[in-house]
Computed example of a mutant assay.
Amino acid sequence: MTDNTTRLDHIVLWVRDPLASAGFYEKAVGLEPVRLADFSAGEAPFPSVRVNEETILDLMPSAMAERMTMLPGAAESSGHPVNHVCVSLPADGFDALRGRLERQSVPVTDVSHNSFGARGLAKRSFYFRDPDGNVFEARHYD
């Protein structure tokens, strides 16, 4: 997948409370909610948060697991988050994210250096969890 036209569109996270999760991602992580009002009004099956202009995180209610019949075994994936999702930010965004998480009393790991990723070695990275146990890594390359 080295074609420059391939982009990450969205990641679906199983969450217990989509509204609370959207609040976490907005306040602690700094991501803009998408379709939150539509979800609250019952007009959308789940809300999302925007990572960037091309990528969103869908906050899928774990109660919808039994409706995931598009592929054998899909319903059983509920409650089994991926190992982690990594977001890459510029250095100032990295520092701002860590500060927001700390102000929200979200536990974060120590900062590590020179971990390998899609763009080579990242200067700094750290990990944190969302309220549903999904693990995120934040890093910057610049």
Rank of each mutant, 00 (worst) to 15 (best):
K123S: 02
L36I: 10
G30C: 12
A20Q: 08
M70T: 04
P18I: 10
V34H: 03
V85G: 09
S21Y: 02
D17K: 00
V135D: 05
A37C: 06
V108N: 12
S62T: 04
Y141C: 05
A74C: 05
V135R: 09
R7L: 15
R129Y: 01
G117K: 15
F136Y: 15
D132F: 01
P131G: 00
D95K: 11
N4M: 05
G117L: 12
T109C: 02
G120S: 03
L101W: 06
L101D: 01
G93N: 12
A75G: 02
F94T: 01
P72W: 04
R67Y: 07
R98Q: 12
A28I: 09
V82D: 11
F94G: 03
H80V: 07
V87I: 15
S105P: 02
R7Y: 13
N4L: 06
A28H: 08
S105A: 10
M68Q: 00
V111H: 06
A37I: 11
P45H: 02
T55W: 14
R50D: 10
T69C: 02
P107Y: 03
S112C: 05
V111L: 08
M64Q: 05
A22W: 02
H140K: 08
S21A: 10
S105K: 14
G73P: 04
D92S: 07
E102C: 13
R98D: 05
E66K: 03
E26M: 07
A28R: 09
A63M: 01
G133F: 00
L97Y: 12
A28W: 10
F136K: 09
A118Y: 07
T2S: 15
R129P: 01
V106W: 11
S115P: 07
K123Y: 01
G93M: 11
S77A: 00
L57H: 11
A41P: 06
D130P: 04
T6F: 14
T6W: 14
V85C: 13
L8K: 07
P33Q: 11
D130S: 03
L19D: 14
E54F: 14
V29P: 10
L31C: 12
G120T: 03
L121Q: 07
G93P: 12
C86H: 13
H80N: 07
L101G: 02
D58Q: 13
S48D: 14
V108R: 15
T55C: 15
L8T: 14
P47S: 09
S78F: 02
Y127A: 06
P18F: 05
I56Q: 15
A118M: 12
D9K: 12
E137P: 12
A75I: 00
P81E: 13
A75T: 00
H140G: 05
P90A: 11
V87R: 09
V106P: 08
K27T: 14
S115Y: 07
V111S: 08
P131E: 00
Q104G: 08
G93H: 14
M70H: 07
R100A: 08
S40Y: 00
D3M: 13
S125K: 10
H113E: 10
E54N: 15
T109W: 03
S21C: 04
L97D: 10
F126Q: 13
E76C: 03
V15I: 01
H140P: 04
